[in-house]
């Protein structure tokens, strides 16, 4: 068996090391090697957004990143969104607005939406829809997702004002 590559990275603020094959995607590394299965696979070609993570400060589809590219990078995933025992306002808003049905796309939506709110506290509906166009949801028709993001934005703004 050809040698695997040793990768050290920071995931959700914690230092992490793993061994992987160059052909393994970061999505595979997270799920199959590190057991972080919150990041989901829907298409494995970048078109559904279920595997969205924050990589080096930007949201990306982790199916289109190689595990070996994670060397020295900062990564955040759905597992790092909640604040300890408290849900992030986005997570809470998704629940209160019934913004999920089957839930498979939800981690990707929440990671992507959080990245939006982190950089733009007051996105309008059009902006939310544009930002999230790389995240497919087949259950909800997006209505309740957009509303949940709007509600979370308002909550985050209130929190920031406090």
């Amino acid at each position: 068996m050809p040698a695997q590559t040793h990768v050290t990275a920071t995931i959700n603020g914690e230092p992490v090391q793993f061994l992987c094959e160059p052909r393994q995607s970061l999505l595979e590394c997270l799920r199959d090697i590190l057991g972080m299965t919150g990041t989901k696979e829907g298409c494995n070609d970048g078109n559904c957004g279920s595997c969205t993570i924050v990589f080096d400060g930007r949201i990306v589809t982790s199916c289109l990143v190689l595990g070996v590219e994670a060397r020295g990078k900062e990564i955040s995933t759905i597992e790092g969104i909640a604040r300890g025992n408290r849900l992030h306002p986005l997570q809470q808003a998704f629940l209160e607005n019934a913004a999920l049905q089957c839930g498979i796309c939800t981690p990707g939506f929440i990671v992507a939406a959080k990245a939006l709110l982190d950089q733009e506290p007051e996105p309008d509906e059009e902006r939310i829809r544009f930002w999230l166009a790389n995240n497919l949801c087949r259950c909800t028709g997006y209505d309740k997702i957009v509303r949940a993001v709007e509600q979370a934005a308002a909550v985050c703004k209130q929190e920031a004002a406090r």
């Binding site: 199959d32 299965t37 629940l95």
Partner: peptide
């Protein structure tokens, strides 16, 4: 009424285990 679903916390935190998550 409109209660929060029982499996909600698992599904917004990535803890819910779907078929492909099984090992």
């Amino acid at each position: 009424t409109r209660p929060i679903r029982h499996d909600g916390a698992d599904k917004v935190t990535g803890r819910a285990l779907y078929g492909a998550d099984f090992t």
